[in-house]
């Protein structure tokens, strides 16, 4: 069941990257943007992002085409707003990478990050899971699965960073790049 859901999710991600709103408590957002080819492109892309209510600090890595936005404490983040803001500037949004804090929970037998405060869920997986996904090993990394199960049972607060993919009818999924236990 879960395997099918994830498969549908990946397919719909490819077909439809817009539309769904993902409300979450997130501490940092990184937008990887194609087309930033001149110094004033930095101004062009930062201007609409600064207008977003959640925007705190804002930095742009011109060389790499990355905009890093700190999120104001207690503010929710609407991923659709980022997509729209970048589309309006005439650039291309390649990827969204989030850093979020929350606890590990379950959604349809699959580990999710349930963010602190808002309860927004992110399906957690590793890139390799696209090929090694099994009903027993939905993350694709047995060691990580054991750690997640431990954190889930102990309600430990964790901080996860990773690229986000939006799905139709499913919670957004996050490819785990780093996951750390947060000391209270």
């Amino acid at each position: 069941m879960l395997r099918k859901l994830l498969l549908i999710g990946f397919l719909t991600t490819l077909l439809d990257m817009g539309g769904q709103t993902a409300w979450a408590e997130v501490t940092e957002v990184e937008l990887r943007i194609d087309g930033l080819s001149c110094p004033f492109c930095v101004f062009n892309i930062e201007k609409p992002l600064k207008k977003l209510g959640a925007a705190g600090s804002l930095q742009t890595n011109y060389k790499e085409g990355v905009v890093r936005m700190g999120v104001k404490p207690g503010q929710s983040v609407d991923l659709a707003q980022f997509r729209q803001a970048v589309a309006d500037t005439g650039f291309t949004l390649r990827a969204i990478r989030l850093t979020a804090i929350g606890t590990v929970a379950q959604w349809e037998d699959h580990p999710v990050l349930e963010t602190r405060g808002t309860g927004q869920q992110f399906l957690l997986f590793k890139e390799e899971s696209k090929t090694t996904l099994t009903p027993e090993h939905t993350i694709g990394d047995p060691a990580l699965e054991r750690r997640l199960a431990g954190w889930q049972s102990s309600r430990t607060l964790v901080k996860v960073s990773g690229t986000v993919h939006e799905h139709q009818g499913l919670p957004p999924a996050m490819e785990i790049e780093t996951i750390l236990e947060v000391k209270p």
Binding site: D34, G35, T92
Partner: peptide, 9 residues
């Protein structure tokens, strides 16, 4: 028509 790439358009 538009085609964007990292650091180029």
């Amino acid at each position: 028509w538009r085609k964007d790439a990292p650091g180029a358009t």
